[in-house]
């Protein structure tokens, strides 16, 4: 990665980016309620599973969207959109992905104006917008993939601190331990993003699907997902 683009990547991956992520737990809130995450060790296994499933899918789609925009092939956005729908069987998670996609699109319109924001339509999937945001920021598909998989674990880790009162240092130590895995996931996603959209990763996480559907029926939620 070129050194001059590192600042752009940090901006995109920063949890303080005002794109709605702070209110999403990535399935952690319903998983905590079901007893699936209760301490640092169970959080780490949850995040490991998330990184290699929905994180890997998001990373590949972000990388593919980044490559498509860099190549001027915005027609590919629609193909990626349909392929991502097929990889997201939970209607609650499809809705969440499109909600977060729209919020990131809104933020990026102001942060880095570009014609692609209009071309993405009114309810784009989050990884596709993230990939486009990376491209507009001058970043490579591998940076887009890394930002996506980082986002997939950093959000739930923060949510665990807020919901369970876990030690924030211990939680960040988990994120540090996951670093090599995130690098691997991003590298694999980048490789596969060069191929056909139909062959992008499609890793399933049945408990995340179930958790999202259960969460959507709750009367009171602290997190939006």
């Amino acid at each position: 990665m070129a050194a001059e683009t590192l600042a752009a990547l940090l901006l995109l991956a920063d949890g303080r980016l005002p794109a709605g992520g702070h209110a999403h737990s990535g399935g952690l809130e319903p998983t905590v309620a079901a007893g699936g995450v209760h301490d640092i060790a169970s959080l780490e296994e949850f995040l490991r599973g998330r990184a290699t499933t929905s994180g890997a899918v998001a990373a590949a789609f972000a990388a593919a969207a980044c490559a498509a925009l860099t190549a001027g092939d915005t027609g590919r956005f629609a193909v990626l959109d349909a392929e991502l729908d097929a990889r997201t069987p939970s209607p609650a998670l499809r809705a969440t992905s499109r909600k977060l996609g729209r919020q990131l699109q809104r933020a990026m319109r102001a942060i880095r104006p570009h014609p692609c924001w209009a071309e993405l339509g009114s309810r784009p999937h989050h990884p596709v917008v993230l990939g486009a945001a990376a491209a507009v920021s001058g970043l490579s598909p591998s940076a887009a993939a890394l930002a996506a998989v980082h986002d997939a674990v950093a959000g739930p880790a923060t949510a665990a601190v807020r919901l369970l009162g876990l030690d924030p240092f211990a939680t960040h130590a988990v994120l540090a331990r996951l670093g090599p895995l995130l690098d691997d996931v991003a590298a694999d996603a980048t490789r596969r993003a060069a191929g056909s959209p139909a062959d992008l990763p499609a890793s399933a996480a049945p408990l995340l699907d179930l958790a999202a559907e259960r969460h959507a029926t709750w009367e009171v939620r602290l997190f939006a997902s």
Binding site: E45, G49, A51, E83, P89, L181, S203, A204, P206
Partner: peptide
């Protein structure tokens, strides 16, 4: 629909509470 489920010792995080 396109779903790939990976379980067992070869899949990171498979027995955590995100996967199964």
């Amino acid at each position: 629909l396109n779903q790939q489920l990976a379980v067992g010792p070869g899949a990171a995080g498979w027995d955590g509470s995100a996967v199964i």
